[in-house]
């Protein structure tokens, strides 16, 4: 049990982050963390030493998250294939260049709000690929294996997730997006 506690401490933040990216609700994310670690514990004997414990755990957490999302939107099917057939993000539209330092435009908490609101607008199947690949730093191969997707499917979702986020962030980050008087640092 002490050994397992060590694993919980090692990976809890990542699992919480991934769960939040998918369920977009803090209470559900807390439940996912508990359920994922419990499931992993119960299935520990099925864990094959040839895959990394972390990616195995992430797979469990992703499945738990999708289940929560499904429960919350009762009756509505949710899978990682949902809503991904959209044309949005195939070719960027808003091509105003960004401020050289978007970080300087907003305070920390305001920036976190913007980032949360922006990713929330993406379909779950895009959010999860972006979260695993770009936020958690999994490789394309690991992401594909974790989600049960082909490598080309991961690549195409990742491209569209990135382009959609980029497009949505443009209105906050483009040059002159924020008038100078708003940068009073009062926040």
């Amino acid at each position: 049990m002490a050994a397992y506690e060590k694993l919980v401490k090692q990976y809890d933040r990542q699992v919480f982050r991934i769960a939040n990216h998918i369920v977009q609700n803090r209470e559900d994310a807390e439940d996912v963390v508990q359920d994922a670690f419990l499931k992993a514990y119960q299935k520990l004997n099925q864990f094959q030493g040839n895959s990394k414990f972390y990616t195995w755990l992430v797979r469990i957490a992703v499945n738990e998250s999708l289940m929560r999302l499904r429960k919350r939107r009762t009756g509505k099917m949710v899978s990682i294939d949902e809503d991904v057939e959209t044309d949005e993000g195939s070719m960027p539209r808003d091509l105003a260049d960004w401020s050289p330092d978007p970080e300087a435009l907003y305070g920390q908490s305001e920036m976190a709000d913007i980032l949360r609101r922006t990713i929330q607008g993406l379909p779950p199947g895009f959010r999860v690929v972006f979260a695993l690949r770009d936020v958690e730093g999994l490789s394309t191969e690991e992401t594909a294996e974790t989600l049960g997707l082909s490598i080309p499917a991961v690549k195409s979702r990742l491209l569209r997730a990135r382009l959609q986020l980029r497009e949505r962030l443009s209105r906050y980050f483009k040059r002159d997006a924020k008038p100078a008087q708003a940068q009073d640092g009062a926040k």
């Binding site: 919480f16 982050r17 920390q108």
Partner: peptide, 13 residues
């Protein structure tokens, strides 16, 4: 976009 998402902990525990 990627750098900003990577450097901000938006779902802090």
């Amino acid at each position: 976009t990627i750098q900003i998402y990577r450097s901000h902990e938006i779902y802090e525990l």
